[in-house]
Simulated scan of single mutants.
Amino acid sequence: MSTYRYIAQRASQAPVRQLCQVLHVAPAAYYAWQRHRQQPRAEPAWQVAVRECFAYHSQRHGTRRLRAEVQAQGHAVGRWRIRRVLKAHGLRAQQPRSFVPRTTDSDPAMRAVPNRLLGQPAPTAPNRVWVGDITYLPRQGGGWLYLAVWLDRCSRKIVGWDVRDTMPEDLVSEALRRALAVRRPPAGLLVHSD
Rank of each mutant, 00 (worst) to 15 (best):
Q73Y: 04
Q73I: 04
G78D: 03
R60Q: 07
I82H: 03
I82Y: 04
S58T: 05
R60L: 00
H61F: 13
L66K: 01
Q73T: 02
W80I: 11
T63F: 05
Q59I: 02
H57I: 02
A68C: 11
A72L: 06
S58Q: 10
V70K: 06
R65I: 07
L66Q: 03
L86W: 11
S58R: 06
T63R: 12
L66W: 05
V85L: 14
W80R: 14
I82K: 02
R79M: 10
R60S: 01
V85C: 15
I82C: 02
H61Y: 15
R64P: 13
V70G: 06
T63Q: 09
G74D: 00
A76D: 11
S58N: 09
V70Y: 11
G62P: 08
R81Q: 13
H75K: 02
R67A: 08
W80C: 14
V70E: 08
Q73G: 02
A72I: 05
R83F: 14
G74N: 00
I82A: 02
A68M: 12
H57M: 04
R65A: 12
H75M: 04
Q71F: 04
A76L: 13
H57E: 10
V77E: 12
E69Y: 06
G74P: 00
L66Y: 03
R60A: 00
T63Y: 11
E69S: 05
R81W: 12
R79E: 15
W80A: 14
R64A: 12
G62F: 09
V70C: 10
E69I: 11
H61L: 14
R67E: 08
G62T: 05
R83K: 15
H75S: 05
V85S: 14
Q59G: 07
W80S: 14
R83I: 10
A76H: 10
V77C: 10
S58Y: 12
I82N: 03
R79W: 05
R79V: 04
